[in-house]
Amino acid sequence: MPEVVEGREFVDEDWYGEEMVDRVYSGCTFRRVDLTDASTQRVTFTGCTFANVRFNASRHHDTALVRCAVERSELFDAEFTGCKLTGTTFTDCGTRPLRVTGGDWSFVSLAGADLRGVTFTDVRMREVDLSGANCSGATLTGVDLSAATLTRADLSGADLRGSDLTALDPSAVRLAGAVIDAAQAVVIAQALGLRIG
């Protein structure tokens, strides 16, 4: 069993390139920690705060950030594969270019985030908050966006094929140039009150 680190504060630490495996952090604070080029595997963060943390070019596999707060942090070129981020909130973060494959990002708040050109593939994002987020040119394929908050989101030019768009109100988002499949076209037409003959 991995050791559980509880309630510790890490400030101005250099974890550049560190390989973290089978660790557990609970209620910890990471402030101005450099995780550039770091990697995590089977690491769990629960109820932690990340403030001004550099996640640049970091790689995360089967890692969990549950009910965490990520504030004013940089995720340039970060990758998350099979990770669980349920209930985590991102505030004033640099999130481009971010790549997410698989995993569960349900109940995550990315409200107002700049997500231009990011990639989410086969990710569970039930009840995610993307209100006011700029997702133009993003790839959101095979994503479960059921019950998501999408008000004022910019999805123009985004690839949305295979994603659940049942929560989408076409009148409340920007969709110009977005790519969808035939089944999604039916869902959007119905949301507009159109009858399909």
Rank of each mutant, 00 (worst) to 15 (best):
M1C: 11
P2T: 13
E3R: 09
E9N: 07
F10E: 09
V11F: 13
V11G: 03
D12R: 13
D14F: 06
W15G: 06
W15I: 00
Y16G: 05
Y16D: 09
G17E: 07
E19Q: 14
E19W: 08
V21A: 04
V24Y: 13
Y25K: 03
C28R: 03
F30I: 02
R31E: 13
R31H: 10
D34T: 02
D34N: 14
L35S: 10
T36E: 14
S39W: 06
S39D: 04
T40N: 05
T40Q: 11
T40V: 00
V43K: 05
T44I: 11
T44Q: 13
F45I: 08
C48R: 08
T49Y: 00
N52A: 13
V53G: 07
R54D: 12
N56S: 15
A57C: 11
S58F: 06
S58A: 15
R59Y: 11
H60I: 01
H60T: 12
D62P: 00
T63V: 09
A64Y: 03
A64E: 15
L65F: 15
L65E: 06
A69L: 14
E71N: 12
E71D: 11
E71C: 06
R72M: 08
D77N: 15
D77F: 15
A78E: 11
A78T: 15
T81P: 02
T81H: 13
K84I: 12
T89C: 09
F90A: 07
F90C: 07
T91H: 13
T95G: 00
P97W: 07
T101I: 02
G102I: 11
G102D: 03
G102A: 06
D104H: 03
W105K: 00
W105Q: 00
S106W: 01
V108C: 03
V108D: 00
A111D: 10
D114C: 04
G117M: 00
V118H: 09
V118L: 08
T119H: 01
T119M: 07
F120L: 12
F120R: 04
V123Q: 07
V128S: 01
V128G: 01
L130R: 03
G132H: 07
G132L: 10
A133I: 10
N134S: 10
N134H: 10
G137D: 06
A138C: 10
A138T: 01
A138V: 01
T141S: 10
G142P: 02
G142I: 00
V143R: 01
V143H: 01
S146H: 04
A147C: 08
A147S: 12
A148M: 05
L150Q: 01
S156A: 14
G157R: 03
A158D: 08
G162R: 07
S163H: 07
S163V: 02
S163D: 08
D164R: 03
L165W: 04
T166D: 09
D169H: 06
P170F: 12
P170K: 13
P170L: 14
S171M: 08
S171R: 13
L175S: 12
A176R: 14
A178P: 02
V179R: 15
V179W: 10
I180V: 15
D181R: 05
V186P: 03
V186R: 15
V187F: 02
I188M: 13
A189I: 03
Q190F: 03
Q190N: 10
A191S: 14
A191V: 06
A191P: 01
G193T: 04
G193S: 09
R195G: 12
I196A: 05
